[in-house]
Simulated scan of single mutants.
Amino acid sequence: MKRAKVAILGAGFIADIHLESYTRYVPEAEVVAVYTRDAEKAKAFAEKHHIPHHYSSLDDLFSSAEFDVVDICLPNFLHKDATLKAAAAGKHIIIEKPLAVTLEEADEMIAACEKAGVKLMYAEELCFAPKYERARKLVEEGGVGEVYMLKQSEKHSGPHSDWFYDVNLSGGGVLMDMGCHGIAWFRWMLKNAKAVNVSASMKTVLHKGRTKGEDVSIVTVEFENGVIGLVENSWAKQGGMDDVSEIYGIDGVAYADLFRGNSVLAYSRNGYGYAMEKTDTTVGWSFCVFEEAFNQGYPQELKHFIDCVLHDKEPLVTGKDGRAVLEIIYAAYASAGQGRKIDLPFHQRVNKPIDLWLKP
């Protein structure tokens, strides 16, 4: 069987999820190298996952290792540089959300990949999550009639890594981290219908001493076909993670909950956590997810991209889709900052999207 060789950039939580997905579900791929800025962390990750090569320099990775695909699982502010170097080296790229920090970076990344003739896939796992996909197919089968509203929410008490809280590194708060999922899913459900305006409200309620970013956001997107999308996100919700979609049609309704029904209901006085590190997020009642990677669509999206590379197909979700999501995020920050509806297309040059809220 022909296999694509993969280099993973990053060694954090999401890189672990991707590595597990390749190992368990994508036999067409072989992870041959890992890069992270910390040499010891790169070595430890490689040893843990039996990866033959590890690097703490992107230049060394691209000049020394032989591979076909770059899987970018790095912090947001590193996306552009990694993408440009991968494109220049002729590597196909799958990149975690958000595509970039700014629209200017996104445009540069897309142009570089087009010039180099390499594939660029925007890794939106909700477009591949089994429950969400079954709900989409139910809609296509006429199960709810004409859709008039979509809702998606993702909520928990905060991200795994400290860099998410630094808006200079992340570009924003919970909207940049999780709101991008709901926005991308709206476009996926609506076959990339054009968004025409955005309204948003956001605030910081739990992490005031830790970040300038919002930890609660509500965004409404109106599309050209008349459908309204409402995405709710929170870093302030206790008791574990929620990820839910709702589809409203004139003849019916459909709900998809990624974790409840695929979890263990638990109560803990002391808490438990990822890699056995106890955290306050799991004190009390919570839902223990036993198949996070599969339920959220990570293996399915990676398998799809490897198939695209091996058989020269266009990915279903591309860098241009990631840019469209980022433009809506820009408009949402501007709406929250100005207290009014923002029409699309929208582009205002800023250092980071959240500046449109913090400095309207």
Rank of each mutant, 00 (worst) to 15 (best):
K194Y: 01
N76C: 14
F223L: 07
K85N: 12
P52C: 13
A29C: 08
A44L: 10
T102F: 06
A275Y: 02
V70F: 06
K278R: 14
Y330V: 05
R340N: 03
A256Y: 05
G209R: 04
H304E: 13
G239Q: 09
A15K: 09
E40K: 13
I228A: 06
L9R: 09
I8P: 04
K115A: 13
T204N: 15
D177R: 03
G12V: 06
A135Q: 03
D177Q: 11
R349I: 11
F13R: 09
V231Y: 04
K278Y: 04
F45P: 10
S263W: 02
V289N: 14
D251L: 11
A184H: 10
S64L: 10
P52H: 11
S161C: 00
A129H: 10
G10I: 11
I8K: 08
A106E: 07
V6W: 03
R37K: 14
R136P: 03
G271S: 08
L74Q: 14
V221P: 03
P52Y: 13
K119P: 01
H54W: 15
F305D: 06
K97Y: 11
M276T: 13
A254F: 11
V205Y: 00
H50F: 08
G297R: 04
R340E: 14
V139N: 06
V147T: 09
A129V: 14
C308K: 03
Y333Q: 02
A87I: 04
S157D: 12
P299Y: 09
F13P: 01
R187Q: 06
I17G: 07
G339M: 00
V231A: 06
A46S: 14
V144Y: 07
T36F: 05
W188S: 08
D251T: 10
P353N: 09
Y255I: 15
L19Q: 15
D68L: 06
H18N: 12
Q296M: 10
V139L: 12
N225K: 06
A100M: 10
P345L: 07
C308T: 08
A336D: 09
K237H: 01
W285D: 03
A135S: 06
E66D: 15
E277V: 06
E292W: 05
I228E: 12
W285L: 11
F290C: 02
Y35V: 13
L120G: 03
Y55F: 15
E214R: 05
F62I: 08
N233A: 02
K208C: 04
I8N: 10
N192L: 00
L326V: 11
